[in-house]
Design a protein around this nucleic acid. Structure first.
Lengths: 203, 203
DNA sequence: CCTACCGATCGGTAGG
DNA sequence: CCTACCGATCGGTAGG
């Protein structure tokens, strides 16, 4: 096979991946704005300038679009966690680094959609995988709380409650933030991290 | 008109109101579990042991069911706020009394539904009224934060951020709490109020 | 309070 | 990547 042939295939695959990404991004935006059930595949296709059947060249079905969006968001969240574990010295440090990354992520199309859109519509197979991944992240943050309690950087709080409490506070950003708001994502993140520090720190 | 006649009418009206209440309660439960769009009027009717057209004797349409549920929840929230203002001495006291009532409310069918279900499906008239009522409550809680800052019971925090932060933390209860969970509503409320106190209190 | 029904929407597919 | 279409669901109504 000539180089040109390989190149052509690679370009085609790359184009396809990029277009798939466009489907997911527009999907995330519309699902977040109108909700999953109130967004039709025609809506997504229209926003991309194609017809509905074309979408099936890039995704298997509507459920897969939402599942992929949430998967990508969860991968980002895991990376934020790894970063926090690598950079932070105390348990408190690590949690705050994580939540700062997470707060900024909640301002992106994927982050917003993943945190806000209900997954009820998905079938059990998809739903279970998402619930499991979320539980894993929840468990990791709880573990950081325990570390922080032991190294003295975090007050003796119930890890379970405070983790739910903080995820709720942060996830809510996806509900009220408009992209055209007055504050930047970083400003919101800073304000929220300061409040999280106050909630967690000893005394 | 005889007494018996008046009594009969009163009974009929009362029965109708009670049945309307049953429609709303079942609606709230199903909307919370499956989402508004994924709950059909047939589902609600079936759960009540009647057929769909019968529902129209008690409510105007599907939108009105959700709007009424949220209105009732917002009325409860306003009452909680009035209670807090009457009982609390400091700004911090008042906010914590309010959020304790609110946290318990979030365990009821109406509270859960109002805090979790998206209102996108409603037409603008309904939606605007809900948004306005929510803004009013938000403004009242912010005012309590300012009071607390002045009387020294609350740290010098940005009232806007901390109010969003706390509402997010509490509203999230409606997302993860199962009625069959290990903790009682009061235990959850106490744990959350303790965290809110830590977030707000000076030092 | 029910039977029967309409009109619209929508996910997905056939076939090219 | 498109035209044309199917089958199912669902809110709401007619008429009793």
């Amino acid at each position: 096979m000539s180089k040109r042939w390989n190149q052509a295939i690679q370009d085609r695959d790359e184009q396809r991946l990029m277009k798939r990404q466009a489907v997911l991004t527009i999907g995330a935006r519309l699902f977040h704005e109108r909700g999953f059930d109130r967004t039709s595949l025609d809506d997504i296709a229209k926003a991309l300038g194609v017809t509905k059947p074309s979408l099936y060249y890039y995704v298997k079905n509507k459920d897969e679009i939402l599942f992929e969006i949430i998967s990508i968001s969860l991968e980002f969240t895991s990376k934020a966690f790894a970063l926090a574990k690598g950079q932070g010295r105390t348990g408190l440090d690590r949690i705050l680094i994580f939540f700062r990354e997470y707060a900024v992520h909640l301002h992106s199309d994927f982050g917003r959609c993943a945190a806000r859109v209900e997954i009820n519509a998905l079938d059990d197979k998809f739903k279970d995988r998402i619930v499991e991944a979320r539980k894993a992240i929840d468990a990791e943050v709880r573990a950081l709380v325990s570390e922080g309690r032991q190294d003295g950087s975090i007050a003796p709080l119930d890890a379970r409650w405070v983790t739910f409490f903080l995820f709720g506070a942060f996830n809510w950003i996806a509900h009220w933030r408009r992209s055209s708001g007055p504050a930047t994502p970083e400003e919101v993140a800073d304000a929220y991290v300061a409040l999280a520090r106050k909630t967690l720190s000893p005394q």
